[in-house]
Design a protein around this nucleic acid. Structure first.
Lengths: 208, 208
DNA sequence: AAATGTGAAGTTGTTCACAGCT
DNA sequence: AGCTGTGAACAACTTCACATTT
């Protein structure tokens, strides 16, 4: 039974930031980077960066720094970004349509392979090769493509019931854009993105 | 010089959650709520809820619970949600257009009063009364309407330069949807929403 | 009896400062 | 000499458990 101490939640979040910075350095043909430089790019403390990197095992050389490619590869494999994970999106309203056309998912290893909506005649978002399927096709699609991750972008009033469906079809992770706190079984992970709350927060801290 | 100890960042975040739950209770004509009930609705620990609420001053009655309306009003005034704050949105691409049409901002006290794009002939998003202005009109609009908050939804390659413009026009808070870590002066607050990173995170924790 | 308010204990996350490699 | 890796100090946050109030 292998029970390594788990990597802290916040470190995992920062690994995504490091990855982005490393991609930029790699594009600029930088071969080596010090904790100080990379930390500045990611806007974190250098000691924190080094501590985070120890979770990968020793990955730098004292007096030298870190090899950009090697570090990038290590974080990629930790985060599972070295392969493309297929996901589905449910709810092709304004926000759902924008997410289907969003270019940034591919860059971090995800591809929306199917979009679903109760009004399946909704126009296919432009710039997007993904067709919009009717909800009835969801269960077969999910099991047929072995999908475990879904983006939920339906209105608040149907969010919980659609989430229940997704879970019953085998989905294990839901990125939820509705403002509802979903009730899901223990083995399912729901993560909320609530832009209204983010805005409210920002506004609060603007006035001290 | 009033220097009360500041309210923790995470408590402020949770106040937004409590507010949403209280709105629901109020709609359902519930007059009183216990920390246990409200905590369950907001998916937090009851002790944590009570501790958060002490930052408002004493707001409950022992043996009784909290009055829904009173608590809602207190949090509204703490968060500044009792008045509507005008904001601008810059970048009316897929995501920007979706945000302009998003209903949820009004519910938490914000209204997008102007949308701006370098291609100002971009179609006005449907369901939205907000016209798309050319970028040249931004400085006059911001100072004319006394706006201090902006949503930034432009592509990565122009994010920093548009942010610089916003700051020079007087914007003090930026909700940034681009995947760039903005460089802003100390007196300006930038808050990032990065859906790709949220997805990457969720995927990591799905596989333990 | 019921449910709040809160010190104290526990947990998690951050930063310092320096020993230890290369 | 330079920069990593890390124990120890520090800071922030969460939860417990119970005294206190209505």
């Amino acid at each position: 039974m292998s029970r390594k101490p788990p990597i802290p939640r916040k470190s995992i979040y920062r690994f995504s930031l490091y990855l982005r910075c490393l991609q930029g350095l790699h594009r600029d043909n930088v071969a080596t980077v010090s904790s100080e430089t990379l930390a500045k790019a990611a806007k974190v403390n250098p000691a924190q960066l080094r501590k985070d990197l120890t979770y990968l095992g020793h990955s730098g050389r004292r007096g030298f720094g870190y090899k950009v490619i090697e570090l990038k590869d290590r974080i990629d494999s930790l985060m599972g970004t070295n392969q493309l994970t297929p996901i589905v999106l449910v709810g092709v309203g304004n926000l759902g349509a924008a997410l289907v056309s969003y270019q940034g998912f591919e860059e971090v290893g995800f591809g929306i392979v199917g979009a679903f909506d109760s009004q399946s005649e909704r126009a296919r978002p432009k710039d997007s090769p993904v067709p919009v399927h009717p909800m009835e096709d969801l269960p077969a699609f999910i099991s047929g493509h072995h999908i475990t991750l879904a983006i939920l972008a339906v209105p608040a009033n149907s969010a919980q019931s659609v989430a229940n469906q997704l879970v019953s079809y085998g989905i294990r992770g839901i990125l939820n854009f509705s403002p509802v706190l979903l009730e899901v079984p223990d083995e399912v992970l729901a993560h909320n993105v609530n832009v209204a709350i983010e805005l409210q927060n920002l506004a609060y801290f603007m006035r001290e």
